[in-house]
């Protein structure tokens, strides 16, 4: 690990200020579960760490007046998995409670996963598939991005060096009648090799299928049957061509989630 300065701002604005002051070599630390691993191998060498742990406004789950579910970026997986949610929002808690392992979920945060933007992280599929909006705080205020704008097409994010992710705004509980997430991983604590999210809109809104982990960013499919979804992901830009097992996984997980969504 390279030496760094550890900074503990008390507010989100102060954190943005510190990032600006310390330049692009400064990095935000939330739970640190991905960042510290990268720092140990020196694939990340920040000169300063700006900790968001002391910024209370950035953590917690609340319902906005619009019905949107606002999840603070530094909300840990453990807290999110225990949040009292209703309707399709319960799937958010279920996904948060079934990734990595318990100790990692204690520290790991939803915002940390999104900013690290590891293609195999479940949270990327979840926010993309449900069309969540991402609130980004910078020196000139807040801007709200769609997942397509937040994630860079080739992987990573479009965040500027002096911006932080403040909150994730999930659509209201009545936006979907049902949301089902499924993934395949080799061992329980591994990141997904493939993940699929099916979101059913009310009325004749249809089902939206999103495939994660096999491309640098999740792919929102336009097709509605498993074979066509697999073919579509196969053709999606970015990353090396899909190999046989990925295609099989996408097809199987899509069929599985679709039948769960339609079965109720």
């Amino acid at each position: 690990m390279k030496a760094f300065t550890y900074l503990t701002p008390g507010s989100a604005e102060e954190a943005v200020g510190l990032l600006g002051q310390h330049g692009p070599q400064a990095q935000v630390i939330a739970g640190g579960q991905s960042l510290l691993l990268a720092m140990k191998t020196r694939t990340a060498r920040p000169s300063a760490l700006v900790s968001l742990a002391g910024v209370d406004d950035l953590a917690g789950v609340r319902l906005a007046a619009s019905g949107e579910l606002v999840v603070g970026a530094t909300t840990t997986y453990a807290a999110l998995s225990r949040a009292p949610l209703t309707g399709w929002h319960t799937e958010i808690a279920a996904v948060a409670g079934n990734l990595a392992d318990r100790p990692v979920r204690t520290m790991g945060t939803i915002g940390g996963a999104l900013c690290d933007a590891g293609p195999r992280y479940d949270m990327l599929t979840l926010v993309t598939g449900t069309g969540a909006r991402l609130e980004v705080l910078g020196p000139s205020g807040v801007r709200t991005l769609s997942p397509g704008e937040f994630f860079a097409p080739g992987g990573g994010t479009t965040l500027a060096a002096d911006e932080i992710l403040a909150a994730i705004r999930f659509p209201a509980a009545d936006a979907f009648t049902r949301v089902v997430f499924a993934k395949f991983r080799q061992r329980t604590f591994d990141a997904a090799l493939a993940s699929v999210l099916c979101a059913a809109r009310p009325g004749n809104g249809g089902v939206q299928i999103t495939v994660g982990a096999v491309r640098p960013v999740p792919v929102v499919a336009t097709a509605a049957d498993p074979e066509a979804v697999a073919a579509e992901v196969l053709d999606a830009a970015g990353g090396p061509p899909l190999v046989q097992y990925q295609r099989e996984l996408v097809r199987t997980l899509t069929a599985q989630t679709l039948s769960t969504v339609n079965g109720s």
Binding site: Y6, G32, Q33, L36, L37, K40, S51, D101, P103, T106
Partner: peptide, 27 residues
């Protein structure tokens, strides 16, 4: 393992379980 895999370093931090090899003392 020092890389948050093996869990041999698990301790409770304010009553919640963490892998102490993947938490900075300053945290």
């Amino acid at each position: 393992c020092l890389e948050a895999r093996c869990g041999c370093c698990s301790v409770e931090l304010d009553g919640a379980i963490v892998k102490s090899c993947n938490v900075l003392a300053v945290q």
